[in-house]
Design a protein around this nucleic acid. Structure first.
Lengths: 146, 146
DNA sequence: AACATATGTAACAGTTAGTGTTACTATTAC
DNA sequence: GTAATAGTAACACTAACTGTTACATATGTT
């Protein structure tokens, strides 16, 4: 469903903003994600449009969360960064003369709708706060062995 | 989750085989789908590997269902034609020095797993027989206006 | 006012997956 | 032997993603 890594990077950005709890530059975030700052700024653009972060131009600028991390669901992140169509119908229209071809498109669309709803429901159950909690938990258990 | 139209075409092929209930050539199927026969043969290759159809070389050859359409779930079709990774982690490893970056990958993987499971559960609830039933229903109601 | 730092964004290259096409080989029915 | 068919390689084209450089614009500091 998610062909790219944009969603994963977006969640990473938001979790990092939540954990650091301050305004971060795209360069700082890019070091954590291990990519180019422009890639981060592009994704931040989508997150800002969706009102999940606010950005500040100029020196001492950067991005920060627009609301508490408990109030940001992964569904909102998904919708902010992924393009709308994840389930593909063919661009070619099937034969209108075939009993199957002339009727299958709406049937497939119905199936795709059900799947998309299932994805959205699952993503809506997880918040950035939960992601941060999971990260902290892993950090704690990882340190046990040291 | 499904970036391409392969899944939709595969369902179309199987529904057509179920409705016609005989061996069909890739050329015949291609006319219904409105694409090139080689595209159909490529997808049939995946379906044959997954034992959903059998194919026959030579004159009077073609493809037919390997089992009753009631016994083919869309999950099997999905797994037969879509490549395994639909949720993308970055290929770049996040910073091992960042508390967030060093722990986020398994957390994201957990989220992706839950979503993938939701998709699979939804697809497993629908059979090719159900798709055919929906097509027949549409055909019947479409004809009412004529 | 000058400067350093930062976002926003355009432009370009490289990669990958999907799609469509032609061409050819191997197989099979008649 | 011939026609019809699957299987598959090779190629071109497109679209999306990723990464990079470059530059205009904005803003805090001195």
């Amino acid at each position: 469903m998610i062909a790219s890594s944009k969603f994963g990077v977006a969640v990473h950005i938001l979790a990092l903003l939540a954990m650091e709890n301050r305004s971060l530059s795209s360069t700082f975030i890019a070091r954590s994600v291990n990519t180019n700052p422009v890639v981060i700024r592009r994704i931040l653009g989508g997150l800002a449009q969706a009102r999940l972060v606010t950005t500040q131009l100029g020196s001492e600028g950067g991005a920060k969360l627009a609301r508490a991390c408990e109030e940001i669901s992964l569904l909102e992140v998904y919708q902010a960064v992924e393009q709308s169509e994840h389930f593909g119908l063919t661009t070619n229209q099937p034969s209108p003369y075939c009993p199957c071809g002339s009727n299958i498109r709406p049937v497939l669309a119905g199936v795709f709708d059900r799947v998309e709803k299932a994805v959205e429901t699952t993503l809506d159950e997880v918040s950035i706060a939960q992601v941060v909690k999971d990260i902290e938990l892993r950090r704690a258990t990882a340190n046990l062995g040291q």
